[in-house]
Amino acid sequence: MKKNVLMKLDRITRTYQMGEVAVKALKETSLDIWEGELLVILGPSGSGKSTLLNIIGGMDSPSSGEMFFGTENLTRAKDQQLTRYRREEVGFVFQLYNLIPDLTAGENVELAAGLVENPLSVSEVLKEVGLESRMDHFPSQLSGGEQQRVAIARAAVKRPRLLLCDEPTGALDQTIGRTVLGLLDRINREQGSTVVIVTHNTPISAMAHRVIRMSSGSIAEIIENKNPLPAERIEW
């Protein structure tokens, strides 16, 4: 695989002020994310993996260090620049789906599709995730797995170059979790989106091109996986 760097993080840190205590959620961390790779960030709770993902997605800003998306410097990006970045380049999938309760499945996808110039077709994407028949259902009428598939459709419809998933299977059982992972795998292969999955669930790392293991706010090791497994064969 040709290794074009899509995103470059250079000695990034993130400190939170909790009352009188400053908590270092992320110590000096450097990382290159390659175009088209499927990256799994692994670590127990509190290891800083979600913070890292939020910074990569422009949801949070680093306290120090430098970060680039392609040639664009995002280090001291203003709110406006970050919004544009999220809108055009990033898709998000959350552990608790975070669908808008007042919008139907179709409308939730449409909500994102409306933001970019060349989105995929809403019905096509929902068909891809196997929910074309549930398009007019509200989130409260869908199961957890279905909600998460809508969330993936909502992220994918924008054709993001970067698809970020925070514990996407955290609230799902194994079978449904595998389906969700399979979808992410397919988006990575067929659309060429770079997919970053944050999880504490070690077996998932088997499907990754690269695995980053985090502990107490910094990267402990980076493992390259020469033979990624298809999602359907992962067990936990």
Binding site: G57, M59, T83, R86, R87, A112, L115, R154, K158
Partner: peptide, 9 residues
């Protein structure tokens, strides 16, 4: 969520 998706403030 809306901000994450890319809606402006």
């Amino acid at each position: 969520v809306m901000k994450a998706i890319g809606y402006t403030s």
